[in-house]
Amino acid sequence: MTTSPQTLSTDIAIVGAGPTALFAAFQCGMLKLKSILIDALDSVGGQCTALYPEKPIYDIPAHPAIEGGALIAALEAQIAPFDVPRLLGSRVEKLTGHRGDFQLTTARGDIIHAKAVIIAAGAGAFGPNRPPLQGLEEYEQTGAIQYYVKKRSDFAGKRIVIAGGGDSALDWALSLSDIAEHIYLLHRRDRFRGAPETLSRIESQIQKGRIEKVVPYQLHALHGSGGALSHVEVSTLSGETRNLEADTLLPFYGLSTDLGPIALWGINTHRSTVPVTPATLETNIPGVFAIGDIATYPGKLKLILQGFSEAAMAVHASHAIIHPDTALHFEYSTSKGVPG
């Protein structure tokens, strides 16, 4: 990671270094375009690395399941032949210029000159939605309450309360059910938001006694001492309470997101996303594109595989900016291989 300010020139500046950004860098290499990855985090991988490196991902083509960290490692290996520069640990604060001649300035003072810009910043800056419970901070400091699972092995033999009704809660309940002593799956109503296959697997683990469904309850209070959790008190809307013996609480109530400086660049935004032209992924600023979770358009699916497709489309659309006098003759990678 570079720590001193630099001034660099490139064809395409990629803001972000998550999976869609890494694949955009690969597509740049395939079209013989120079690129650079810029990210506020200290390592590449975005949420896959920062939030769930050991969480299985099930919707990557050709992979029945692949952990977030393994996916990032594979994407890094894919761009290795192109020696893509990275500016990590400092977010982009300013974007000025116009199509074919942009300047990006990072918080550290790096200056990047680029002919096109691809924003692949996920949902922007992110942090967990924290439950409003008394004494929360004390348990957070000891790790009794966590919002992300980075190492499954940390939860071996633990009694775990998983709170939430969405994909993260369901996926981690399944992933940890084979190593935890006991898992309580807590939700305020008896209906979970998940794929039919996921819900079927949850039901199977409930029948085997590896997961206990606690509905319709919500978090009410924490009990323990010295930062060590002993019980999680839950309650119904009618006031009935129950104490769950637990060592760890994992609240999965989603992420609070903030576009940060991106919202000040003159780019149209809508509810923390950036509207784009579906055919090119271009924003309202010519030469600036958005891909992945930050991009929105009719029919958008927030899937990594769709982000990969958007990366290819945005890079191909950028080619005309970098080489306006050269027609792009698309060739399949099976025919052309990886450019030397």
Rank of each mutant, 00 (worst) to 15 (best):
I60N: 12
L22H: 09
I112M: 04
A70R: 09
E181K: 15
S318Q: 03
I12H: 12
G209M: 08
D110H: 14
V214T: 10
K208H: 11
I38F: 11
Q207I: 03
G109W: 05
H316C: 06
M313E: 04
R159Y: 11
A24K: 01
H270W: 09
L75V: 03
A62D: 14
Y147W: 09
T283L: 02
L328Q: 08
L133H: 05
L222F: 03
L328S: 06
T96N: 15
A114M: 10
S9T: 15
D154I: 00
Q27F: 06
V315C: 02
E233V: 13
D110E: 06
T280C: 08
Y297A: 03
G157V: 05
K151A: 14
D11C: 07
T2C: 06
A180F: 02
I112R: 07
P131F: 04
T257M: 06
S9I: 01
P19N: 12
P85N: 13
P298W: 10
D190V: 03
H329Q: 14
Y147V: 05
G209K: 05
G45Y: 08
G45S: 11
L133R: 07
G164S: 08
D325T: 13
G254W: 06
G194C: 08
D59Y: 13
T236F: 08
G299Y: 11
D293Q: 04
L41I: 02
S318P: 05
